[in-house]
Structures are given as structure tokens and as C-alpha cells.
């Protein structure tokens, strides 16, 4: 059982095959057609090629038994932590609530403290106020304790604790810290110059900027200290104390949520 195709010269076989697919030039096709009329074995070979092609073409499409869509695991990607978007929203909401309460409190304090002395003290605290304004609201709890630590030695353990809590944070938090360090030198001359004013001056400076700056939980403590040591300070009303506690709680909540979000985000971007 032999085929006419195997006996055909290689060049003729290629020409016939390409002619069948319409893949030769018009000139070549015309020459081949003239030969096909003269050479019956060439015509037979063309028929065999055509039948083979149509037989292959008749093979049915097969349906794949499964789906080939890729999963993140297949391409070495990690799935997003499921709590991540919810956590981010909660952090944003807590930060917003914190800033709102602090802002309202600060406004109330500003209205109450219109005395000239209070104005003067506030003017000396301007660099610190500027720092607090410059600091992004995203991580207020992280920065404020540092400012307080510069002015009041008793706040240092708290500031240190805040720094330790900051340590596991993502690069973003570290960038914030660096930014805070860069701003701080502008504020540092104050603690240096305060010894001239005296011990009471230091305490006053530590407490006086409080209404204008973002109040933090360490600040609740410093105000308490000032209440004990400075006779001029009036006892804090019950409502105000509640407000401070609320601020502290919100600040802690916002800080905790942001820290958790940043840690989760950093874990997610680790190569799987």
C-alpha cells in the first residue's frame, strides 16, 4: 500500500501542499495549474493532500474537563488578609473621631483661655504648636508623647513605651518618626531655655500648650501634675475629665488600629 505522495519530489510536494492552502504566489500557482493539466499523478497527489487535510479538519473539538483559571497560589501570590479593608476603615474612623473630639476640646479651651497671660504663654509654646500642626493626624499618639517627653521628665517612661510600641511598625510609621525627629530640633531650644524661667516655668510650659496642641493620654498626666504642684491651676471639672478620658481612649484605639493595619499590610507584602 503506497501513496503517490511519497514518490513525489520534495519540492513538488511542498508546492502542492501550499497551493492547497492558497499560500503560493499567483505566478507559481499559474505554473502549477498548467502542470496539473499535463501530469495526472500530480493531480492525484493534490487530491490525496486535500483529503488528508479535510480528515484532520474533521477532528472534533474536545471540551476540557476543568477550568484553567489561575489562583494566587499558582502564581506565588498571597491572598489579601480578609480583615485588611475593614481594619483600615476602622482605623480611619477612629482617627477621624479622635481628631474631631480633640479639635472640639481645643476650641472650647481656646475660648475659655482668653486671659493675656495665657496668650503670652501660648506664644512661647508656638514652636511646639507648629510641630503638632505639622505632624499628620494619622499617628498623633505616636508623636505627641515624644514632645511631652522633651518637656516633662515624668512623661519619659510613657514616651519610651510609645517608642517601643512603634518599633514593629511598617516603613511608613518609621518615616513619620524620622519626620518627627527632623521637626523636633526646632522645638528643642525650648527645653534648653526653660531652666532660665525656673521650675514652675517648666511645668507651665508643659501644661500651657496643651489646649492648643493635640491632647494625648500622657498629657492627661501632665495636667494632673500641674494641678497638684501649681496652686494657681483650678481643679478640673468632672465633664472635662470625662472628655480627656474619651480623647485618651480614642487616641489609643486609633493608634492600635493603625499599628495593626500597618503590621498586617507589611506581612501581606512579604514574598510568599
Amino acid at each position: 500500500m503506497s501513496s503517490g505522495l511519497s514518490a513525489l519530489p520534495k519540492r513538488d510536494l511542498e508546492r502542492l501542499s501550499a497551493y492547497l492552502d492558497g499560500e503560493i504566489s499567483d505566478k507559481e500557482a499559474a505554473r502549477l495549474e498548467a502542470r496539473l493539466e499535463r501530469e495526472p499523478e500530480l493531480g492525484r497527489a493534490l487530491q490525496e493532500l486535500r483529503a488528508t487535510k479535510s480528515l484532520l479538519r474533521s477532528l472534533p473539538e474536545v471540551r476540557p474537563a476543568r477550568d484553567f483559571r489561575l489562583t494566587p497560589e499558582m502564581v506565588g501570590e498571597r491572598r489579601r488578609a480578609p480583615a485588611y479593608p475593614a481594619l483600615r476603615l476602622a482605623a480611619v474612623l477612629a482617627t477621624f473621631a479622635f481628631v474631631l473630639v480633640v479639635g472640639l476640646d481645643a476650641l472650647g479651651q481656646l475660648n475659655a483661655a482668653m486671659a493675656p497671660e495665657a496668650m503670652r504663654v501660648m506664644a512661647t509654646a508656638a514652636p511646639e504648636a507648629a510641630f503638632n500642626e505639622a505632624a499628620p493626624a494619622q499617628a498623633p499618639a505616636a508623636e505627641a508623647p515624644r514632645v511631652e517627653a522633651e518637656a516633662v521628665p515624668t512623661a519619659e517612661p510613657l514616651g519610651g513605651a510609645a517608642e517601643r510600641a512603634e518599633a514593629p511598625l511598617a516603613p511608613e510609621a518609621r518615616a513619620l518618626e524620622q519626620a518627627a525627629d527632623q521637626v523636633l530640633p526646632a522645638g528643642t531650644p525650648c527645653p534648653e531655655c526653660t531652666p532660665k524661667v525656673g521650675e514652675a516655668g517648666v511645668l507651665r510650659e508643659a501644661t500651657a500648650p496643651a489646649p492648643a496642641t493635640a491632647p494625648q493620654e500622657p498629657r492627661v498626666q501632665t495636667t494632673a501634675i500641674s494641678a497638684e504642684t501649681t496652686p494657681a491651676a483650678t481643679p478640673m471639672p468632672q465633664r472635662l475629665l470625662g472628655l480627656r478620658l474619651l480623647e485618651a481612649a480614642l487616641g489609643l484605639l486609633a493608634f492600635g488600629l493603625i499599628a495593626a493595619w500597618l503590621i498586617l499590610r507589611r506581612r501581606r507584602t512579604w514574598p510568599g
Binding site: 500500500m1 503506497s2 501513496s3 520534495k10 511542498e14 502542492l16 501550499a18 483529503a51
Partner: peptide, 23 residues
């Protein structure tokens, strides 16, 4: 072009052995 021509020729030879099945 050349691979397809040779593939068709070889397939043709092989398929002729299954003559009774072919159309």
C-alpha cells in the same frame, strides 16, 4: 510550508492502513 507538506504525506501513508475506517 515544508513541515506541513511532509506531515500531510506521512499522515496520508499512516491513514491508508486504517482503510476500512476512512470515508
Amino acid at each position: 510550508k515544508s513541515r506541513l507538506a511532509r506531515a500531510r504525506a506521512r499522515l496520508r501513508e499512516c491513514l491508508q492502513r486504517h482503510g476500512e475506517l476512512l470515508p
